[in-house]
Amino acid sequence: MSSMSSSSFASAATPAASATPAASVHPLTVGFDLDMTLIDSRPGIKAAFEELSAVTSTFVDADLAISRLGPPLEQELAHWFPKERIDEVGDLYRELYPEYAIAPSPAMSGAREAVAAVQAAGGRAVVVTAKHEPNAKLHLNHLGIEADAVVGWLWAEAKAEALREYGASVYVGDHTGDVRGARTAGALSVAVATGPCGAEELRTAGADVVLDDLTAFPAWLARHLEG
C-alpha cells in the first residue's frame, strides 16, 4: 500500500491540489503496463506491421518485431527504415493501427480480474504504457477492461512521471523497462513473465515480485494488503 499517511490524503484533497490526479482519496493505486501485461498485442501488432510493410514497400520482419515488444515504436522502426523516415512512418503506423491491431489482440489471462481486484479493494488501476495513448484506450475499450486512467507515450524510467503523479505504490509490467520505471518511481515492482523477458531476467533487473501471469495477481494483492 501507499506509504502516505491519512493526514497526507487530507492535505492532498485541498483545492490547490485538486487539479492533479494524485492519490488524494485513493490510498491504493496500482499501475499496469499494457502490451504483454494486460493484452496480448502480438497478433494485432504483427498485422499492423505487415500492412505497414505492404504500404511502404519496405520489408519488416513482423515476427521478429513482436518478439521484442516493450520499447517505443520508434526503436523498432529504426531497424527497418532510415532515420529521416522514422517520424513519417511512425505516424502512418499509428494511423493503420486501429483498423489492423485492435480486434485481433486478446486480453491476457487474468487481466480483467487483476484490474477488478484493485478496484474491489477500493483502489485505482492506472495503465501506464509506451503505446500511443489513443490506441491504448481503443484496446481497453474493445476488451472491456475498465482502467481508472490511461497514460501513454512513457517508456522505462519515464513511466515514473505518471506513477508519481497518480501516487502509485505498485507497478505491474512484463519488461525490465517496467521494473526500472517502478523503481524510479519508488513503487513496488511486480513483474509478470508473460512478455519478452523471462522470470530470472526480471528478478535480476530488480523486480520485487515475479508472477507467472496475472491470474496470480489477485491473491498476491490480498496478501500484500494484509501485510
Rank of each mutant, 00 (worst) to 15 (best):
Val126Ile: 15
Arg68Ser: 13
Met108Arg: 11
Val126Gln: 05
Ala65Val: 14
Ala107Glu: 14
Ala78Met: 12
Trp80Arg: 06
Pro82Thr: 03
Asp91Asn: 07
Leu77Pro: 00
Ala136Gly: 09
Pro71Met: 04
Ala117Arg: 01
Leu92Trp: 06
Ala65Phe: 03
Glu113Ile: 09
Asp87Leu: 13
Asp148Asn: 13
Pro82Phe: 05
Ala116Pro: 02
Ser67Gln: 14
Ala116His: 11
Ala111Cys: 11
Ala114Gln: 04
Ala130Gln: 03
Gly144Arg: 11
Gly90His: 10
Glu133Trp: 11
Gly90Phe: 02
Asp87Ala: 15
Pro104Leu: 10
His132Leu: 04
Val127Gly: 02
Arg124Gln: 14
Gly144Cys: 11
Ala120Leu: 10
Ile102Tyr: 10
Leu69Cys: 04
Arg68Cys: 07
Arg85Asn: 06
Leu77Ser: 02
Pro106Phe: 06
Arg68Val: 12
Trp80Asp: 07
Ala121Asp: 07
Arg85Gln: 12
Tyr97Ser: 07
His142Asp: 15
Asn141Thr: 15
Gln119Gly: 11
Asp61Lys: 07
Pro72Ser: 08
Thr129Asp: 06
Phe59Asn: 12
Ala130Trp: 02
Ala107Ser: 14
Gly123Ser: 09
Trp80Phe: 15
Ser109Pro: 04
Asp63Phe: 04
Ala65Trp: 00
Ala149Cys: 10
Lys137Trp: 08
Ala103Asp: 15
Val118Ser: 06
Glu146Asp: 15
Glu133Cys: 11
Leu69His: 02
Leu138Glu: 14
Val118Met: 10
Asp61Phe: 04
Gly122Tyr: 06
Tyr97Phe: 15
Ala65His: 03
Gly123Tyr: 02
Ala114Asp: 08
Ala121Phe: 05
Arg68Asn: 04
Thr58Pro: 03
Leu92Lys: 12
Val126Gly: 01
Gly144His: 10
Val118Ile: 14
Ser109Asn: 05
Arg124Leu: 11
Gly122Ile: 00
